[in-house]
Design a binder for these strands. Structure first.
Lengths: 175, 175
DNA sequence: AGTGATGGTTCGTTGAACGAACTGACTGGG
DNA sequence: CCCAGTCAGTTCGTTCAACGAACCATCACT
């Protein structure tokens, strides 16, 4: 989405949502945050996004309370971007969107699966665990697994490589 | 989102999803389709969208199999745009996004509520009916109700007026 | 023949995204 | 101390999509 501004006049929560998370790149940044990406340079390498756009989106997300900056070293000063609780609740949007696309537009096997960490079962389309009967599996209890599908030309950036190498629990730092 | 093109290189279903429904206006058009809006002119009046952009998005949505055109009169030839099953499944994305925004960014009372038509109960954040214990309430079983909040300056276009006047079942034609 | 409704298309302007280059703070090595 | 390298941005000229006003085509009604 390219916008940022105003669906104003639309007195509608959905329109306000899209002002926040509907801009181009924003939801992919949030997805990466779920994967455990936390640093400017890692977002940059994984997303192939113009640097200025990334900087802009990160500050917007921080202002909206979806990400928070936190200092992880002082010299030189370096911050990382972490999902807040508010941001983590966006899992309920991201997973259904991912799932909808897998169901309707996938060709072949999925490149990733999302599994309930407690039992290893792949989540159903609504984000529940069919084995445990767990109603709302929280992102912290989910692992991303690679495959079974393989991309034609796998990306070589550190984030993509890490996600292929081993299952990774959402929200945990990737590095 | 403004894009339309390529998050290519992102071998990711979420990125492909955003190519389809992540463009500016697209999800608002789909939302209106759930409300029962079906005609070019009604989308136009309700959304305040440039005519060319609306025409472009409608054809894109039809090509993606999210909407389908169907002729409702022959002279002059007039088509309406209806959600397909694939499109209707986007409810699982739209409702959580609406709900997330209501929870985190609403000021005062909601302007609309979504209720289980069978029992009149407002849906919970996950889209379930707390009264019936119904797990996945399908959009065809949901009614949009106005209020309790009132917009400062209510819109006067036919779609907004109709949605304020009486509860309306999703997917049913508004006019 | 003239007017209005409907559903577009055309086109010049504006604004956002792109991407390459640059900056500034710091580290670690020689 | 100097130099190369890393990291996290900012700057800026170009490109491309959104905007919005005007125009157009088809048909009905009078």
């Amino acid at each position: 989405m390219a916008l940022g501004k105003n669906y104003e006049g639309q007195n509608c929560s959905l329109a306000r949502a899209l002002e926040l998370v509907g801009e181009r790149w924003t939801l992919l940044i949030v997805r990466d945050a779920f994967y455990g990406v936390r640093r400017y340079g890692d977002f940059l390498a994984h997303l192939d996004i113009p640097r200025a756009v990334l900087a802009d989106r990160l500050t917007t997300l921080v202002e909206a309370g979806i990400l928070q900056r936190s200092r992880y070293q002082d010299s030189p000063p370096r911050d990382e971007y972490l999902l807040t609780d508010r941001g983590a609740e966006l899992w309920s949007v991201i997973y259904p969107l991912w799932s909808w696309t897998e169901r309707h537009f996938s060709t072949g096997e999925p490149l990733r699966t999302f599994r309930h960490a407690a039992c290893g079962t792949a989540l159903d389309p609504a984000g529940r665990c069919p084995t445990c009967g767990q109603m709302d599996v929280r992102p912290g209890d989910i692992e991303v697994h690679a495959g079974p599908g393989e991309p034609a030309q796998p990306r070589q950036d550190p984030v993509s490589v890490a996600l292929r190498q081993r299952p990774h629990r959402l929200l945990q730092p990737l590095f």
